[in-house]
Design a protein around this nucleic acid. Structure first.
Lengths: 211, 211, 211, 211
DNA sequence: CATGAATGAGTGTTCATTCAT
DNA sequence: TATGAATGAACACTCATTCAT
């Protein structure tokens, strides 16, 4: 019933039925249009035209425009979070890993303004988003960070007094707030500097070794 | 809750050119509708009906609906920030004042979910907002906090290494992130607890006295 | 909230605010279109074109097409039932009055095929109809007939064994069934003959005097 | 309830060219969907999905959706009327047989609301229905009843003054009117009670023996 | 016999905006 | 200052239908 899209990545090696080209073209079309204007200002007919497909086909694949947006978002987040997971491997020390996560988060927001805008502004005021597969990947990211903090507490790198949940929230809150204003006022973001700022404000103080 | 509206009538030195009653009624109407549904789902005609005035009249006063929203928002923020300024007087110590600011911020977001939603979700993806009078009051709040931090550094309460701008951003980012999820998932917020969390994570570490 | 249409007929003598001409024109347009084709095949744009008004205006007055249909129907039924009430005055004897009611019912269905079709075929499979003002007039007609039967029982004209409710239903059922096939197969209906048939089958047998 | 379907397979003299399974599945799908929603709200794609077959296939078999509906209806009516014929055998007396017919009619309408709705509301406003095989079975039922009445007149059970055609119509009209309101307002129907009411109102009065 | 993919044309509905009074 | 009436242009969405495979 719900449309397939593609489980190609996770799929076993046999016959994962490539999604129709049009489906891909539609998603690409939205992605490209998002570079030009707000999501809410994009119409079905624009998407159809850009994708070079029929308007009704969009409806058939993605039952409404939010769905399409979430699908596009999902792919983006899936890629980023999956890559982050990989990148984290081999990094020694919890703190170093946390630092890497923060850097990646900032880097992603800074380098793809279109998605930054969508993530920070567009999707959140639509309740359906929080039930979407896209949001699942946000959760996954959050979980990763909280697990890391927990790990740090266990191995003695991080002070026991810290609540993993609230620390994670403070970190993400800070990152997003920094980036949001940069996104809105179209200012540059330097991931290195910003990572250090966050690190100094939120991580350094909770290091056990600093005592 | 049913606060503010217009101080014109109650205003001190009279002759502030009392705005026509209809204007007030329109703004009240929007405020009340915002309690029922998303801003983007509210139509001119609904506002007109609720206000008991003609549709065309709204159009004459507020040339587009965002404008009306900002107007309403401005009144809300003006009241809150002004009161905060008053409340801050007489509090001894920079840290105590900062703490008070944080508490007030959280309290406001937690007690008026309608405005919390608007502030955290609705207005930001519309560039015009950042040029509105409403946003001026947000800036004012930010300025107050940064000034306070600066003051703290000068009088030795706060470590010199701290950047007022970034600390403020981290604080506000954390607060907003905490509250945003509470707003979205309709969970309770306890201002006292939350204030302490923010305090512990972001303020305690930078106190000079902690050394 | 619900649109006014007109209470002109029942209205007191002062200022009943004539409904905008367009409203009347729209209803007239539907009425005329119903002569040409099925209701379900009539589109907003056709109505608008026929009425010479804007498409959006229809929506403003009648929030959906069924509503418009019911409104048109209501006027028709209101007129007919009201006139019937008047016509009944002065007729001596319950039986004679019942007979008159039957005749009028058949006559109306036979002389206005458009409305016959709507009443017998179109509206009934839409639940909203039974909550409409139009249906209220059908109820009123039914009530009138049942009251008449009850009266006949009381004054001894009609056998006591008869259930007013079920007799009325059988009468109306018979009338409608007769007329329905005539409407469908576009055959003539002779109200006099048909009235007599119904009378003989359903009324004569229950007359007290026949014993 | 899950009756009929296709007698082709079970059919006697074999070689009735068993219809492809898909055709059966499609009809079953429609039947099941009719339990959930109005016919007019059912789309090809829903039928296809429910049947588990391709959309285009339905189109190939039944060139429009009304056709499919009539096909389903035909099977239902065929079964019911055929069974009625059987059930009538061995019943002594015209009146008793008429009574049985009425009872069966009411029973069928009361026990299968889906088909009751279709028969009484859905099909009649589509002219094609009256040329369908489904309608042939309705005619057959009508013929049976009229023949029975005629028989009754001949064998002296029924008064000579009665018109078989009009009596049948009155009976059917009454039955359908009773049942229609029960169907619409989702009320229970008691076949026994209702049969008696119809009997008392329409059959008793025309019995010769009652004189 | 059956399917997946795609299409075209239309539908009801919505709403900001205008203007004569 | 305020209103009632009217408009135009768009928009998301729907679905029967077709066709290459």
């Amino acid at each position: 019933m719900k449309n397939i899209i593609n489980k190609a990545q996770t799929g076993s090696d046999l016959q994962t039925k490539t999604p129709p080209i049009s489906q891909v073209k539609i998603m690409e079309a939205l992605r490209s249009l998002l570079g030009e204007k707000e999501f809410s200002a994009i119409t079905w007919s624009e998407i159809a035209q850009t994708a070079g497909v029929n308007e009704g086909l969009i409806y058939r694949y993605f039952h409404n425009s939010r769905n399409l947006l979430h699908q596009v978002l999902k792919e983006y987040l899936e890629t980023n979070v999956s890559r982050l997971k990989l990148d984290l491997r081999g990094i020694k020390g919890t703190m170093a890993q946390l630092s890497k996560m923060i850097w990646a988060h900032i880097y992603n927001l800074s380098s793809d303004r279109v998605f930054a805008k969508i993530l920070l502004l567009e999707v959140r005021n639509y309740p359906g988003y929080f039930k979407s597969e896209a949001y699942e990947w946000v959760r996954e990211y959050n979980r990763m960070m909280e697990d890391l903090i927990r790990e740090g507490i266990e191995n003695g790198e991080i002070s026991k007094d810290v609540s993993p949940l609230y620390l994670r929230r403070a970190i993400v809150g800070a990152i997003e707030h920094f980036c949001l204003s940069a996104v809105i006022f179209e200012k540059e973001i330097d991931p290195d500097t910003l990572t250090e700022i966050v690190y100094n404000l939120l991580l350094k103080p909770i290091q056990k070794t600093s005592y």
